[in-house]
Design a protein around this nucleic acid. Structure first.
Lengths: 115, 115
DNA sequence: CTCTATCCATAGCTGTTCTATGGATAGATA
DNA sequence: TATCTATCCATAGAACAGCTATGGATAGAG
């Protein structure tokens, strides 16, 4: 993992899959979408994005095809597959569980077992 | 990073520092505390914990001293330093910002710039 | 006396993300 | 025309976190 990541490590796939769930996108567009949706809080570097897309291709979570952009440029469009959609669901629920668990630790409650 | 981590990567130091903010603890106790506080959702492996503690020592976030446990065993007690306390604050706020940003992406809102 | 829980710690691996590059083209501007 | 900027692709190499696996030691229970 990187030391001072611009995002929370382990959440990149989640962000990409979620973005693609809104419709097919090319790599550059995915990066822009995440930046826009997060109101500039999250920046995905291309050096992180493309390897992640390759991994997603291998996993079968997305498929890719070359097309033309609205701006008349060749670009590789990624589309979420069914497997990708189910993976997205799994990652969302895991993420939410993690957040809930961490929040328990950060809060100052007394755990059940101590009562 | 591990593929299927038991915790969210990048949050281990946060969890350790927070635990120590409740009072000095030895390594084994820290692991138990996190498990208990998270109601068994988070398990910190010893192979993750001790290296993390070494890093924290180097960073000056914690100090360590050998003492005796209530159960009459030698144990290395870690105490949060002032630097550690301020680091904890920084990590908490960064973590909260990250969660907020990711939540924006996961939600189906329309970002400001698109309006 | 043996077993389990408590306690420490390191070595080595793997995977993720970053930085740093490298390349190419469309359209705007000078 | 020339050059610059934004758009678009992608890989190599490094750094680092966290895991598995391992090894050791002791207190107390059975």
């Amino acid at each position: 993992m990187a030391k001072k990541s611009d995002l929370l490590p382990g959440t990149l796939d989640l962000l990409i899959l979620k973005t693609l769930s809104r419709g097919p996108q090319h790599g550059y567009g995915i990066a822009l979408s995440i930046k826009r949706q997060s109101e500039d809080a999250l920046t995905v570097e291309e050096g992180s994005l493309y390897p992640a897309l390759q991994r997603s291709l291998l996993q079968g979570w997305v498929k890719a095809e070359w097309k033309m952009t609205e701006t008349n440029r060749r670009a590789r469009f990624y589309t979420l597959t069914e497997a990708g959609r189910s993976q997205l669901g799994a990652e969302i629920s895991k993420f939410e569980q993690m957040i809930a668990a961490i929040s328990l630790v950060l809060s100052d409650h007394t755990p059940k077992e101590a009562l």
